[in-house]
Amino acid sequence: MIRIRNARDFCGGLLLTAFGVFALVLAHGYPTGSAARMGPGYFPNMLGMLLVAIGATLVVTSLRRDGARLPRWPWRPTVVVLGAVVTFGAIVPWAGLALSTVALVFIASAASHEFRLREAAVSGIALAVLAVLVFGVGLKIQLPIWPVFFG
């Protein structure tokens, strides 16, 4: 029976193989050309095949040699931190720098085990003032500072 001895490398290998296959599938439609006259598909195909080969090697060795187990996944920080960033990106064009900053800081603070409501609110406002001064007034970036209302 096949036993996975190194779960971490097994997953890593599968992921890399998947990336390689994905690249090969996407690159399928690009003309390859010849070595002397390479088309846009030549180099990507080469890389895709290499990646598949390496990924497969990793999978095979992970069945043979004992190694690390699969580590635990930091769900809360991942979701909260990236969620804060995505929210910021989504609302900043119309909500403006000031409000978006407060939103980002507030959401992001929740990722920590020691979330404190008042502290998050205070640092959100303080950072909003700082961000507006540095980026809006100082560097004059092209971002609305206050919400843009349509109509």
Binding site: L104, V105, A108
Partner: peptide, 8 residues
């Protein structure tokens, strides 16, 4: 308090 600022 540091990481939200870095993130921002």
């Amino acid at each position: 308090m540091l990481y939200p600022a870095i993130l921002l």
